[in-house]
Write a protein that binds this DNA or RNA. Structure first.
Lengths: 134, 134
DNA sequence: TCCTGTATTGACAATCATTATCAATAAGGC
DNA sequence: GCCTTATTGATAATGATTGTCAATACAGGA
């Protein structure tokens, strides 16, 4: 059930590659625009599909920006969380073992099964701080 | 700047009340539907505005469901987080002092200012677990 | 209590991200 | 190379949310 009838296309590679190039999280629309600006003729719907695939496979993280857009990022290893600059989008992966454990504990203590969690920290990075003083 | 020119209307009360009655998180559309079903003639846009107001004032919490809808819930006290059943929407407020502190520490350690965070735990509540066995 | 200025409302249009549709294309096993 | 069918992409459709703006009704003063 992993990839029984999956086919490899240059479109999927393009999306995977573009996502790898991007710094921080990017939306599908934005990624599509980047690809087109680089000469690609890839379609918007395809970018959406490819990103959803990558996220499903586990090769991409996804989160929702505060205005409702779904953002993606190339996923290096396994499960982790992010510290995101709300101004420039700079992203740092953070260790959250303590919190992982805590989340599961809380869920189980209340009788909830299959716990998942959303843990993201937003802030203004140092670069944007100095920039905004002006 | 708190409420210099704010007026009280039955619409705002209706939304506040309906939100109080609701169990767990509800979307604006859903709340609007409930109000109409109860005979109210309130407009959809007004529900959106009232909910946004409540959230801004601090009388309501908001979070985004996994399909992009913004959900609201009457807010009892100050800052807290939630454990939400992804099936029935049952919500429990959880204590997260440890995590609060951790989030701020992490942000500051990386030079990020004005940290805010999104911490929500999703799971299947015990009631829904037994229900889904059938 | 009545008047009046204006915050607020509500119907509807507009926006924006995302998903569905479906004919045309191309990946990959033979 | 051929054939099956997964995949693409242009476009329409969806669904939540916000903008518009004339009509309405709250609230303070006469």
């Amino acid at each position: 059930m992993t990839d029984s009838k999956r086919r490899n296309t240059w479109q999927k590679d393009a999306v995977r590659h573009a996502l790898g190039e991007a710094t921080g999280f990017v939306g599908a629309q934005q990624l599509h625009l980047v690809l087109r600006n680089h000469g690609s003729t890839i379609g918007l719907a395809t970018v959406y599909r490819a990103l959803a695939d990558l996220a499903a496979i586990g090769d991409a993280d996804s989160l929702q920006s505060q205005d409702g857009e779904v953002l993606y990022r190339a996923c290096t290893n396994s499960h982790h969380h992010h510290l995101i600059c709300r101004n420039c989008g700079l992203t740092k992966e953070i260790e959250a073992e303590r919190v992982e454990a805590w989340a599961d504990e809380v869920a189980e203590a209340q009788g909830f099964s299959n716990p998942t969690h959303t843990i993201d920290i937003f802030g203004t990075c140092s670069a944007c701080q100095s920039r905004n003083i002006a």
